[in-house]
Measured scan of single mutants.
Amino acid sequence: MASQGTKRSYEQMETDGERQNATEIRASVGKMIDGIGRFYIQMCTELKLSDYEGRLIQNSLTIERMVLSAFDERRNKYLEEHPSAGKDPKKTGGPIYKRVDRKWMRELVLYDKEEIRRIWRQANNGDDATAGLTHMMIWHSNLNDTTYQRTRALVRTGMDPRMCSLMQGSTLPRRSGAAGAAVKGVGTMVMELIRMIKRGINDRNFWRGENGRKTRSAYERMCNILKGKFQTAAQRAMMDQVRESRNPGNAEIEDLIFLARSALILRGSVAHKSCLPACVYGPAVASGYDFEKEGYSLVGIDPFKLLQNSQVYSLIRPNENPAHKSQLVWMACNSAAFEDLRVLSFIRGTKVSPRGKLSTRGVQIASNENMDAMESSTLELRSRYWAIRTRSGGNTNQQRASAGQISVQPAFSVQRNLPFDKPTIMAAFTGNTEGRTSDMRAEIIRMMEGAKPEEMSFQGRGVFELSDERAANPIVPSFDMSNEGSYFFGDNAEEYDN
């Protein structure tokens, strides 16, 4: 993207840094990872977990959730003011799984939030270390993106479920800051804005008074975040219109849905970061690795190297396929839920299948599930090659597409044709070009129609051997075009429920 120079890199967003050079960025990201790792080690000690239990991804998720809940100030305040039966607002906890007599047992633990905050700050040299908290939120978000298709949420806001490739980060909490905003897809931002506008339509006082002023500035800020994701002048001009509207209503909703559809071809720039579970960072720190000293990046080879040398386990339900569970977590670790499966298959070195073909449910185990038949197995999170994460949407291309997802959002900077089903997408653009945004709409449609099938995206960008740390010898991959490109292809993934 041309304006790259004016933006802070995501590592800076990730670490609240002012302008830093590459070495400083690597050190501050490393410091953040160190903090998460030290916190995780301490929690495993508190909970008396064995090494194996500490490497269980379900335990990692519970521990991450506990610290996120302990620092969720708004919710904590709300819980104190609106006490609900049987919930102690000062405590947080969740299921911890232990191996007892050759069987997995679930144990519900409860801790004072104050105590968890103390352990977290102690692991982070006394700081609140917001960057580390956001990092864990993005890992949870990436896992949700890989596990669930947001059909219901899309339909509720009037969008087409086939636009799911635009929904990265749709389950990120509001408090995820600049680093969170960077990884949100165009569809996620559109959905947040539509929800806001709908509230304004239904509630006369939404934009009024002292609160209304705050609401208005939040609305304009979200519009600017979305505008910054678009790469064409016409899309940005249309966002200006939406932002400046005196009284946002149905016309703005129409414009936003139009823009979301246009992003299936004229893709937005959305950041991709490899955020790993805390149970990967903990053992690495415990083994003596100093992330701050060595430096770390979320968008280069580092996460690949770390996963190459990590042992992570997962509980497996009786009829689940461990290899499929591994694929789910591998995609989440690489922030690749909406990437082209052919690119992923090449990088991973084994075939990556669409969601609907995987015999696996989510990673988390519900409290009512029976533990008797639970097994555990090693997650295979290694890769054959590594590639640089991208934040450009890439230019655009036609490809055989599917009944489910009709476009992709690249996660890796790797040369390819970008699949999208042009006739299906263009069919949504018939007729409606009147109104105050008509010239911009016409211009956007013209650009979409001009998108050429034979153009290559990320020209000359390749993948790298894991021994090639400096990215000196790019390998331009070859793809098996007979395979499906979309992950949520004609899909039956479970729906995400809060």
Score class of each variant (00 low, 15 high):
Asn492Ala: 05
Asn321Asp: 08
Ile388Arg: 03
Gln231Pro: 06
Gln398Met: 07
Gly460Ile: 00
Gln20Asn: 02
Lys229Cys: 06
Thr92Asn: 14
Asn250Asp: 10
Ser60Lys: 12
Gly54Ile: 02
Asn473Thr: 11
Gly54Gln: 13
Met481Ser: 02
Phe489Asn: 02
Glu443Lys: 09
Ala403Ser: 13
Thr396Tyr: 09
Gln12Glu: 00
Asn142Lys: 10
Ser170Val: 05
Glu455Arg: 11
Asp372Thr: 10
Ile388His: 05
Leu328Ala: 05
Leu264Trp: 10
Pro95Phe: 01
Leu264Ala: 11
Arg117Phe: 08
Thr45Arg: 10
Gly435Trp: 12
Ala387Glu: 05
Glu192Arg: 10
Met196Ala: 12
Ser69Tyr: 07
Thr215Ala: 13
Gln12Gly: 00
Gly30Asp: 01
Lys98Phe: 04
Thr215Gln: 13
Asp421Val: 15
Asn144Met: 14
Tyr296Cys: 11
Ala401Gly: 01
Glu484Tyr: 00
Thr433His: 04
Ile265His: 01
Arg204Glu: 04
Arg400Leu: 03
Leu379His: 04
His135Gln: 12
Ser377Phe: 15
Met159His: 03
Leu307Gly: 06
Arg317Val: 05
Arg8Leu: 09
Glu455Ile: 14
Met191Gly: 04
Val476Cys: 14
Asp255Ser: 07
Trp104Phe: 15
Tyr296Ile: 04
Glu24Ser: 05
Gly435Met: 04
Gly431Gln: 14
Arg174Val: 05
Val280Trp: 05
Arg461His: 02
Ile41Asp: 07
Leu61Trp: 09
Gly37Lys: 10
Glu339Lys: 13
Gly295Arg: 10
Cys275Thr: 14
Val414Lys: 01
Arg65Phe: 08
Pro89Phe: 15
Ala286His: 08
Gln149Phe: 06
Ser467Glu: 08
Ser274Leu: 05
Asn21Val: 05
Ala286Ser: 11
Leu315Phe: 10
Val270Met: 07
Val190His: 02
Asn321Trp: 05
Ser326Glu: 08
Phe489Ala: 00
Val463Asp: 10
Ala260Phe: 04
Lys198Cys: 03
Gly349Glu: 12
Ala218Cys: 11
Gly30His: 01
Ser335Gly: 10
Met447Glu: 08
Met440Ser: 09
Leu61Cys: 12
Leu79Gly: 04
Lys214Glu: 05
Gly5Asn: 07
Ser287Ala: 08
Ser402Cys: 07
Gln235Tyr: 08
Leu226Pro: 08
Lys273Ala: 03
Ser262Pro: 04
Gly300His: 05
Asp421Phe: 04
Gly177Met: 12
Ile406Gln: 12
Gly393Lys: 04
Gly431Lys: 03
Leu381Asp: 08
Ser9Gln: 11
Tyr281Lys: 08
Phe489Ser: 05
Tyr385Ile: 08
Thr92Pro: 05
Glu115Leu: 03
Gly450Trp: 06
Val100Cys: 11
Thr350Ala: 15
Val242Asn: 05
Cys164Phe: 01
Gly54Cys: 05
Ala129His: 08
Trp207Pro: 00
Glu495Asn: 14
Pro322Cys: 13
Glu294Arg: 14
Gln398Ala: 04
Glu14Gln: 06
Gln405Lys: 15
Glu14Leu: 14
Val186Leu: 12
Val109Ala: 13
Arg236Tyr: 01
Arg416Asp: 00
Ser376Phe: 06
Gly490Trp: 02
Arg470Met: 08
Gly30Ser: 06
Val463Phe: 03
Gly200Lys: 05
Gly180Ala: 07
Glu484His: 02
Gly93Val: 05
Glu449Gln: 09
Ala251Asn: 07
Ser335Trp: 06
Val329Arg: 03
Met43Phe: 10
Lys422Ile: 01
Phe304Ala: 14
Met191Lys: 09
Ala336Lys: 00
Lys452Asn: 13
Val183Gly: 03
Leu298Asn: 05
Leu68Trp: 08
Lys113Trp: 08
Ser392Glu: 03
Val183Ile: 15
Thr151Ser: 14
Ala179Gly: 11
Gly35Ser: 15
Leu166Ser: 10
Arg152Leu: 02
Asn492Ile: 04
Asn309Gln: 12
Ser377Ile: 11
Leu276Phe: 09
Asp16Gln: 10
Ile347Arg: 03
Arg348Met: 06
Leu379Arg: 01
Val280Glu: 08
Lys229His: 13
Asn202Thr: 13
Arg26Ile: 07
Gln20Arg: 12
Gly30Gln: 15
Ser377Leu: 12
Arg342Val: 06
Ala451Gln: 13
Ser402Asp: 00
Gln459Tyr: 03
Met426Glu: 00
Ala336Asp: 11
Lys113Ile: 05
Asp372Pro: 05
His140Leu: 09
Arg74Pro: 07
Asn144Gln: 07
Ile265Leu: 15
Ser262Asp: 06
Met448Tyr: 00
Gly282His: 11
Ala401Asp: 00
Asp468Gly: 03
Gly282Met: 08
Thr151Leu: 05
Ala472His: 13
Ala332Val: 03
Glu292Met: 10
Lys48Glu: 02
Leu259Ser: 10
Ser262Trp: 06
Leu68Ile: 15
Gln241Lys: 08
Phe479Trp: 04
Arg213Gly: 03
Thr430Ser: 15
Pro303Trp: 04
Asp51Lys: 00
Gln308Arg: 02
Gly288Thr: 07
Ala27Thr: 11
Ile33Ala: 14
Gln405Arg: 05
Lys351Phe: 14
Asp340Tyr: 09
Ile445Pro: 02
Pro161Glu: 00
Gln327Thr: 04
Glu11Gln: 10
Thr188Met: 03
Thr134Val: 14
Ser310Thr: 14
Met105Tyr: 09
Asp34Ser: 12
Asp290Arg: 07
Arg389Phe: 07
Ile301Val: 13
Lys198Glu: 08
Gly485Asp: 00
Leu298Pro: 02
Asn498Thr: 14
Leu133Ile: 15
Leu315Pro: 03
Leu108Met: 12
Ser297His: 05
Arg461Tyr: 03
Lys77Asp: 01
Glu114Arg: 02
Leu266Pro: 00
Ile138Thr: 08
Thr157Ala: 14
Ser50Lys: 12
Lys77Ser: 12
Glu18Ile: 13
Pro89Arg: 02
Met105Val: 11
Leu341Ala: 05
Gly158His: 13
Asn319Trp: 01
Ser141His: 06
Val190Phe: 02
Pro95Glu: 14
Gln399Tyr: 03
Thr134Arg: 02
Pro354Met: 02
Val190Asp: 02
Ala129Gln: 10
Cys164Met: 15
Asn432Leu: 14
Ala411Gly: 01
Gln327Gly: 10
Phe258Leu: 13
Arg102Leu: 14
Ser486Cys: 09
Asn205Thr: 13
Pro410Glu: 00
Asn492Cys: 09
Arg175His: 02
Glu114Gln: 12
Gly93Gln: 12
Ala278Lys: 05
Gly431Ile: 13
Glu369Thr: 12
Phe338Pro: 06
Ile138Arg: 01
Pro419Tyr: 06
Thr437Asn: 14
Asn498Cys: 03
His135Lys: 11
Glu210His: 02
Gln235Pro: 12
Gln231Val: 05
Ser274Arg: 04
Glu73Phe: 12
Arg156Cys: 06
Arg216Asp: 03
Gly393Thr: 02
Glu495Met: 11
Met105Glu: 07
Asp290Gly: 13
Phe338Lys: 01
Gly94Arg: 07
Gly431Asp: 00
Tyr385His: 08
Leu143Gln: 02
Gly158Glu: 03
Leu143Trp: 12
Asn319Val: 14
Ala260Asn: 03
Lys357Leu: 10
Thr390Ala: 07
Phe71Ser: 07
Phe488His: 03
Leu226Trp: 12
Leu307Asn: 02
Met66Asp: 10
Arg204His: 09
Arg121Pro: 00
Tyr10Gln: 07
Thr15Ile: 15
Phe230Ser: 04
Glu210Phe: 08
Arg470Ser: 13
Asp88Asn: 15
Arg389Asn: 09
Pro161Tyr: 00
Leu266Arg: 09
Ser165Gln: 01
Glu210Gly: 11
Val183His: 03
Pro303Gln: 06
Arg261Ile: 07
His272Lys: 06
Ile33Leu: 15
Ala237Cys: 13
Ile316Gln: 02
Ala129Glu: 04
Glu375Tyr: 05
Gly200Met: 08
Asp240Phe: 01
Leu68Pro: 09
Ala336Val: 00
Ile445Ala: 15
Ala2Gln: 00
Phe39Tyr: 12
Met426Gly: 00
Pro318Phe: 12
Glu46Met: 13
Trp386Val: 08
Phe420Met: 11
Glu369Asp: 08
Met136Ala: 09
Tyr148Val: 04
Arg461Thr: 08
Gln405Ala: 09
Gly200Pro: 04
Pro419Gln: 05
Gly35Cys: 09
His272Leu: 05
Gly86Val: 00
Gln364Gly: 01
Met426Phe: 02
Glu252Ser: 02
Phe420Ile: 12
Ala336Arg: 06
Ile365Gln: 05
Tyr281Ile: 09
Val352Phe: 05
Ile36Lys: 04
Met137Tyr: 06
Tyr487Leu: 01
Gly288Trp: 08
Ile201Pro: 02
Gly200Leu: 06
Leu172Trp: 04
Thr130Tyr: 02
Arg470Asn: 00
Leu344Asp: 12
Gln405Asn: 09
Ser407Gln: 12
Ser245Trp: 00
Asp112Met: 08
Pro410Gln: 06
Glu380Ser: 05
Thr396Arg: 15
Gly187Lys: 07
Gln20Ala: 00
Ala332Tyr: 08
Tyr97Asp: 07
Ala323Ile: 14
Met239Ala: 15
Pro303Glu: 05
Tyr52Gly: 12
Lys90His: 14
Asp127Val: 15
